[in-house]
Each structure stands twice: as C-alpha cells, then as structure tokens.
C-alpha cells in the first residue's frame, strides 16, 4: 500500500511541479486517470504474483509417513506464513531411509536441485531420517549466518519430541524457533535496498543519460531549424535516375555474447550450513 501511495505521490508531483500541490488532494484530470489506473493494475498484479509465488510450493515432504493429512496441511500453512513473512524458504523432509546419503547432502541436493531459495537464496531445510534416526537442520544463503548460533539450541529443543514420536509437535516447535531469530534479522528493509541502489552504477548511468539527453535536446535547436532539403528547390518530377548499378560484394557477420542477468552474490556457492544430531 505504501508503495502505491509513493508512486501516486510522484505522479502528482511531476504533474503539478510543486510539492505543495502534490500533498493536496487535487483531482488529477482525465489523462492521468488512465496512468493511475494502469499503475494500480500493475501494482496489483505485482502484489498478487509475489505472495502467490511463495505459497505455491510444497514445503512438507513426508516420505517417512510420520504425519497425518491434517497435520501436513497445518504445518504447510505455518511454513508458508513464516517463509513469506521472513523471506526465507522453509522445508521439512522426512524419510524412512536415505540410502547412505548424509542428511546434509540430502538437504543440499533437495534445495539446490529444485532451485529453492528466495532471491538471496535464503532457506532452511529440516531433515528427519527414520532409518538412521538423524535429524539435521540445513541452512542456506542468508539463513546460514542468521542461525549459526542457534542451530544446536533448535536441534536440542525438538529432539525430545522426535524421540517421543510427537512429530507434529516437533515440527510446529521448529517453526516457532524459526520466527525468533528471523525476527531479529528480517529481510533487508526498503531503505537498505535504496542504499544498495545508491552505491551501484545503474542509477548513475541512468541519471547521466537523462541529463545528457535533456540538455542535448534543448540545445539542439538553439539557432533554429533548417527546413531546406535536397527536394526544396527541385522542380517536381524532374529527377530522372538514368543509371543504377548494385553489385553485391560480401557479407560480414559478427556475434557478440550478451551476458544474461548477472548472478547475484552467493556466499559459499552450493554449500550449506547447519547442524544436527540423533534422536
């Protein structure tokens, strides 16, 4: 909502060229109605897609059959909410056997293989393997640093429930453990994004281009336009092309690689953090 208000403010400001008018609720007029409407449409579309993206994922993979249908649904909802609120992808994987694969690797394969993780690849995967009775909490991206001090506490906190086969309780407790540290280091605030833009080159290039183009346009016709062309004094229909010759010579082709969107900084590549134990 705040974003929407900011955009409207900017539109009003540019239309009335004064701060005072932009604060007053002056009616904008017909042409800006359409731009307002379009913008509203655009922003709504953005807001709709973003949360939808976050909730479309399955977060509980109960291959170990530890939970009932309703428990899965409940836990899924909780994980959805926490993932969206704190911009970190949360998952719980249970299994009867990992076939020799360590829970850490299992979590990594799952996370990276399915391209999970938010924009800065932040996520947490809890692996519970009945075969080896392993519990493992794997952290990725930003979450590595967030949870580093907490991992053992969390594992110790849920292990009793796992031992007592209270799996649903364990997972719900796990979710609540996610919230506390995430509360302290939430996703970057709007201002931090602004600072990120301010220290990077795209903003400067755009501003430089805008200034150059506008100054150029205004200086262009300083002396006046030249209206005379090669046809101005030509007697109409008097031009005769008496000879043409077009001889094909050669073709040159150049290919330049266009770099796709620059990869974001990912600390530690495809690795993960976390810890675990037995239950």
């Amino acid at each position: 909502m705040l974003f929407y208000k900011i955009i409207i403010f900017i539109i009003k400001f540019t239309k009335h060229y004064s701060l005072s008018n932009a604060f007053i609720n002056k009616p904008l007029g017909k042409s800006s109605f359409y731009s307002k409407f379009f913008l509203f449409f655009l922003i709504t579309a953005i807001f709709i897609t973003t949360p939808a993206g976050a909730s479309a994922k399955q977060r509980v993979f109960d291959n170990g059959s530890l939970l009932s249908e309703e428990e899965i649904v409940t836990i899924q909802q909780v994980l959805d909410r926490v993932s969206a609120d704190y911009d970190t992808d949360l998952f719980i994987l249970t299994s009867t056997s990992l076939n020799g694969v360590t829970p850490k690797k299992h979590a990594e394969d799952f996370f990276w293989g399915n391209n999970h993780g938010t924009r800065d690849e932040s996520g947490v995967v809890l692996v519970v393997d009945m075969g080896e009775r392993d519990v493992w909490m794997a952290t990725f991206g930003r979450a590595i640093q967030t949870f580093e001090p907490e991992v053992q506490t969390i594992i110790s906190g849920i292990t009793p429930d796992l031992t007592a086969a209270q799996y649903s309780d364990a997972f719900l407790k796990f979710s609540s453990y996610m919230e506390k540290p995430l509360l302290e280091i939430t996703k970057p605030t709007y201002l931090e994004y602004v600072k990120k833009m301010a220290t990077n080159w795209p903003a400067y290039i755009i501003a430089l281009l805008a200034a150059l183009i506008s100054t150029g346009v205004l200086s262009f016709n300083l002396k006046g336009a030249k209206l005379v062309t090669n046809k101005t004094y030509e007697v109409p229909d008097s031009f005769v092309l008496s000879e043409t010759r077009d001889t094909y010579l050669r073709t040159t082709t150049t290919r330049t690689k266009v770099s796709s969107s620059s990869s974001g900084s990912s600390s530690g590549g495809r690795s993960s953090g976390g810890g675990g134990g037995k239950f």
Binding site: S238, F239, L241, E243, T244, R245, R250, T251
Partner: peptide, 19 residues
C-alpha cells in the same frame, strides 16, 4: 545468448539529372 549483426556490402553507382 548472442546478438548477431549482419552487414551486406554493395558496390553502387547512381547517375541522374534534375532541374
């Protein structure tokens, strides 16, 4: 991932007249 630019070259001659 590539931008391809193809340039064809021609040798041309044009003759004519006008008033």
């Amino acid at each position: 991932d590539y931008r391809v630019t193809e340039t064809k070259y021609y040798d041309i001659k044009r003759a004519g007249y006008a008033d």
